[in-house]
Amino acid sequence: MRIRSHTDSVVIKGAHSSERLLDEVSLFLHSVRLRPAAPASGSDDDLKGRKVLMVDDDMRNLFALSKALRGRGMEVLMAQDGSKALRQLEENPDIELVLMDVMMPVMDGYEATQEIRKNPRHAHLPIISLTAKAMQGDREKSLASGANDYLPKPVDIPKLLSMMRVWLHR
Rank of each mutant, 00 (worst) to 15 (best):
I3Q: 10
R4V: 10
S5M: 12
H6V: 14
H6D: 04
V10R: 05
V11R: 08
V11L: 05
I12M: 12
I12V: 15
I12L: 11
A15P: 15
S17W: 11
R20V: 14
R20G: 10
R20T: 12
L22C: 07
D23Y: 05
S26H: 14
S26D: 14
L27W: 15
L27N: 14
F28L: 10
L29I: 14
S31K: 04
R33H: 13
L34M: 15
R35Q: 14
A38L: 09
A38R: 13
P39T: 13
S41C: 09
S41W: 09
S43Q: 09
D45M: 04
D45Q: 10
D46L: 15
K48E: 04
G49R: 07
G49D: 00
K51D: 03
K51C: 06
M54Y: 01
D56A: 07
D58A: 15
M59Q: 15
N61F: 08
N61D: 03
L65S: 05
L65P: 07
L65A: 08
S66P: 09
K67Y: 02
K67R: 14
L69R: 02
L69V: 00
R70I: 12
G71R: 01
R72W: 12
M74G: 03
E75T: 09
L77K: 00
A79D: 03
A79Q: 00
D81A: 01
K84Q: 14
L86D: 14
L86M: 10
R87I: 06
Q88V: 05
L89S: 04
L89M: 06
L89A: 01
N92I: 01
I95V: 10
I95R: 00
L97G: 00
V98D: 00
L99V: 02
M100E: 02
D101E: 05
D101I: 00
V102Y: 04
M103D: 05
M103G: 03
M103H: 11
V106L: 03
M107C: 04
M107A: 06
G109Q: 01
E111T: 13
A112R: 02
I116M: 15
R117W: 08
R117Q: 11
H122T: 02
A123W: 06
I128F: 00
L130N: 05
K133N: 15
M135C: 11
D138I: 08
E140H: 09
E140Y: 08
K141V: 03
K141Q: 12
S142Y: 12
A147P: 03
A147G: 07
N148P: 00
D149Q: 08
Y150A: 07
L151P: 11
I157P: 01
I157K: 04
P158N: 01
K159I: 01
K159Q: 04
L161H: 02
L161D: 00
S162E: 11
S162L: 10
M164S: 00
M164C: 05
R165F: 02
V166N: 15
V166M: 14
V166A: 09
H169T: 06
